[in-house]
Simulated assay, not measured.
Amino acid sequence: MLGTAAAVLFFIAFLISAADIATNQAFSSGNVMLLGLTLLALHVAGIGAGWRPGRSRRR
């Protein structure tokens, strides 16, 4: 899920940069890209993943 959110943020950052849209400092292309990188790093680290080790049921 976090990987998908990162991809969406990268696409938004690309649109802001490519279309040269004037935004305030909080939503600049670089800041949106850094948020995407943060989400991508969390995804790679396993945060937000559906599978958790040690959670299997044995009968």
Results as ranks from 00 to 15, higher is better:
residue 1 M to A: 12
residue 2 L to D: 06
residue 3 G to Y: 09
residue 4 T to Y: 11
residue 6 A to W: 00
residue 8 V to Y: 11
residue 9 L to N: 02
residue 12 I to N: 02
residue 12 I to M: 04
residue 12 I to Q: 03
residue 14 F to H: 07
residue 14 F to N: 06
residue 15 L to I: 07
residue 15 L to A: 06
residue 17 S to I: 06
residue 17 S to H: 10
residue 18 A to P: 03
residue 18 A to C: 09
residue 18 A to L: 09
residue 21 I to D: 02
residue 22 A to I: 08
residue 23 T to Q: 03
residue 23 T to V: 03
residue 23 T to A: 02
residue 24 N to T: 10
residue 25 Q to L: 11
residue 26 A to E: 10
residue 27 F to D: 05
residue 28 S to T: 14
residue 32 V to M: 07
residue 32 V to D: 01
residue 33 M to Y: 08
residue 35 L to T: 12
residue 36 G to F: 00
residue 37 L to H: 08
residue 38 T to Q: 04
residue 39 L to I: 05
residue 39 L to D: 01
residue 40 L to Q: 07
residue 40 L to G: 03
residue 41 A to N: 07
residue 41 A to Q: 08
residue 42 L to H: 07
residue 42 L to V: 08
residue 44 V to D: 06
residue 44 V to K: 12
residue 45 A to V: 08
residue 47 I to Q: 03
residue 47 I to A: 11
residue 47 I to Y: 05
residue 48 G to C: 02
residue 48 G to N: 04
residue 48 G to I: 01
residue 49 A to L: 12
residue 50 G to W: 11
residue 50 G to M: 10
residue 51 W to L: 15
residue 52 R to E: 15
residue 54 G to V: 07
residue 54 G to Q: 09
residue 54 G to C: 09
residue 54 G to R: 03
residue 56 S to G: 13
residue 57 R to Q: 13
residue 57 R to F: 10
residue 58 R to K: 11
residue 59 R to E: 15
